[in-house]
């Protein structure tokens, strides 16, 4: 066992050495942001998703989210759909993993059927919105390679500017530019570059609130697609932390009866 720890320590050390100073600093910042959000336990929140097309016509989706933190793996996630009404009662369960593909199930209320679904869909749109699946699943540190690009003043906020490149070849992006505020390591802006490295979307975060005196969550997230002119706004409501959820609320049986 001791040998294992020494070996893994050595490996980590060599890997850190292999990184350029910019990469090392980038990884440090990403890890710090991740560490600051550890230990929340679980939370529930309601989400309104407002889709607006190029002509300014909009439609709304309403979802409820339940998230459970895992000790040594990605979060477990249960999403309940309330609107549009034809998908009401549909429920989505995901076990996200730090490495390797996530496990995902979908409950279809009309057939009372639980379907294991492929998690191979990364870049496709979530419910017709400008958010891709990969933009919404848990953002594990290991899913990107980082590079620190410097500090910048973003609309009055002193920010770290990072570039991150997705490890997954199925990602729809070559890279993302991410701005974290230096004080609390909260993300304020992400620019997404498509497979041809052209600017595709910009995501901005607004109205950060602190919960349990520690965990920051934005009330509003706004995604603008520069190539299609469409946009999607997420409005988060009723954040509630440490509600007493357990693994039992995130299994296939719970998926069938979740409301």
């Amino acid at each position: 066992m001791k040998v294992f720890w020494i070996l893994s320590g050595l490996m980590a050390a060599t890997m850190a050495f292999a990184l350029t100073p910019e990469a090392r600093r980038g990884l440090e910042i990403a890890r710090e942001a991740d560490t600051r959000d550890l230990g929340f336990g679980d939370f529930t929140a309601d989400m309104e998703m407002i889709l607006t097309n190029r002509q300014g016509k909009s439609s709304t989706r309403i979802l409820r989210n339940r998230t459970l933190e895992q000790e040594n793996d990605g979060d477990k996630l249960l999403v309940l759909f309330d609107n549009p009404r034809d998908v009401k009662g549909t429920a989505f369960l995901a076990f996200t993993h730090r490495q390797g593909p996530d496990d995902q199930w979908l409950y279809l209320p009309s057939l009372k059927r639980v379907k294991r679904i492929s998690s191979g869909n990364k870049s496709g749109p979530f419910m017709g919105s400008e958010f891709a699946y990969e933009d919404l699943t848990s953002q594990e540190v290991d899913k990107y390679r980082y590079r620190f690009l410097g500090t910048e003043n973003l609309n009055g906020i002193e920010a770290f500017k990072l570039e991150r490149r997705p490890v997954d070849p199925k990602s729809g992006y070559t890279r993302q530019l991410v701005w974290y505020d230096q004080k609390e390591y909260r993300i304020y802006k992400i620019e997404f570059y498509d497979r041809k490295d052209a600017l595709l979307k910009t995501l901005t975060y607004e109205g950060y609130q602190q919960y349990l005196g520690k965990y920051w969550r934005a009330d509003r997230m706004f995604m603008q697609n520069h190539q299609t002119g469409k946009s999607t706004e997420l409005r988060w409501k009723k954040y509630d932390f440490r509600t007493g959820l357990s693994d039992r609320n995130f299994d296939r049986n719970a998926l069938k009866r979740a409301r």
């Binding site: 492929s118 191979g120 869909n121 990364k122 870049s123 496709g124 749109p125 497979r195």
Partner: peptide, 12 residues
């Protein structure tokens, strides 16, 4: 077998 997000169109 599913081809997801075919050629970046969002179509499966």
């Amino acid at each position: 077998y599913t081809f997801f997000d075919l050629r970046g169109t969002g179509i499966d």
